[in-house]
């Protein structure tokens, strides 16, 4: 065990945890917007996969990582819109419609990949940015301030989300629609428009999450996300529908995975325990859900379609 507490390993564990948290963070923040307005979107993973393929393909063809991220945005917006049509306008059962989007994304991203790319070729990665001064701090600098550009964007999205939800008029409408759509409606807030907006934001961030993952890994493959989108949904509950909480959840998940991995590399967890160790993140999440559920309540209108006059 003492092997674990060496400087190099600790730095790598923290840095690795942060890297693993990034796609989850993007996707969870997006999902949080939808849930705050009362819509549960289970299709995140499918949108992530489509965004991942789109981002990968764009970079493969143009060598421009930012264009790749933009393609992820565009795909995310389109599927956010589709989700909104399904959940808001057509009032589809939210627990199930997302599964359809997931299966579609899983199959279609793979289909396009096979059709357009075939052999997985590596692409350019995001540039690494060492933040001046801060990155020179011993240990901490290496852990936190020597990451690729997209990592900083992800963490910058957290205060931005806090600001939007807590300090803006739009954020107030989101909260109102999520807690009491009837009251919001009677005050002249369009429940439909607000939910469309939050779902498009959610789709956008899911698309970005996928593109960021693919570009960070420099590769696309069938089922690249490996169900990360579902973890992201759980993290929203874990984070009690608050950006900081969501960030904490994403980091915790990243760290648990990263620590398990380091322990395996160092031989502290024996190989025969691999499968048992792989359960750890899910079990930790369930326990966390129990604790969070005691203290926080979900938005009151979550999963309920709005119908005026009922």
């Amino acid at each position: 065990m003492s092997d674990f507490f060496t400087e190099a390993v600790l730095i790598a564990t923290v840095a690795g945890g942060i890297r693993l948290a990034v796609p989850l963070l993007f996707a969870s923040l997006g999902e949080m917007f939808g849930q705050r307005s009362g819509v549960l979107n289970l299709g995140v993973d499918g949108v992530m996969l489509l965004g991942a393929f789109g981002g990968y393909y764009a970079v493969l063809k143009t060598d421009n990582v930012w264009l790749g991220l933009l393609v992820g945005v565009a795909i995310g917006v389109v599927f956010g819109l589709i989700t909104a049509v399904m959940s808001v306008t057509l009032k589809a059962e939210q627990g199930i419609s997302g599964i359809g989007i997931y299966l579609f994304g899983l199959g279609f991203s793979d289909l396009l990949f096979q059709k357009w790319v075939g052999t997985p070729l590596p692409i350019k990665a995001f540039p690494k940015i060492n933040i001046p001064v801060l990155s020179d701090i011993p240990i901490i600098g290496e852990m936190l301030f020597r990451h690729s550009a997209v990592v900083y964007i992800a963490f910058a999205a957290v205060p931005l989300s806090m600001f939007i939800i807590n300090r803006t008029n739009f954020g107030m409408k989101i909260r109102a629609v999520g807690e009491n759509p009837e009251a919001a409606d009677s005050l002249g807030v369009s429940v439909t428009k607000v939910r469309y907006a939050t779902l498009i934001i959610g789709g956008l961030l899911a698309g970005v999450a996928g593109a960021a993952l693919a570009i960070d890994l420099k590769i696309f493959q069938q089922n690249l996300t490996n169900a990360a989108g579902f973890i992201a949904i759980a993290l929203v509950y874990f984070g009690a529908w608050r950006p900081l909480g969501v960030m904490g959840g994403a980091l915790l998940y990243g760290f648990v995975n990263s620590i398990v991995l380091q322990l395996k590399t160092l031989g502290i967890i024996p190989r025969s325990w691999s499968d048992i160790a792989a359960m750890a993140p899910a079990i930790v999440t369930i326990l966390a859900l129990v604790i969070v559920a005691q203290r926080f309540k979900p938005p009151a209108a979550l999963t309920k379609p709005f119908e005026r006059g009922r």
């Binding site: 499918g46 049509v85 399904m86 057509l90 589809a92 059962e93 199930i96 419609s97 599964i99 359809g100 989007i101 997931y102 299966l103 579609f104 994304g105 899983l106 199959g107 279609f108 793979d110 289909l111």
Partner: peptide, 14 residues
Amino acid sequence: ILALNGLVVVFVVS
């Protein structure tokens, strides 16, 4: 086929 399966789900639920 997987994509088609997803589409069926989406359409039925919607």
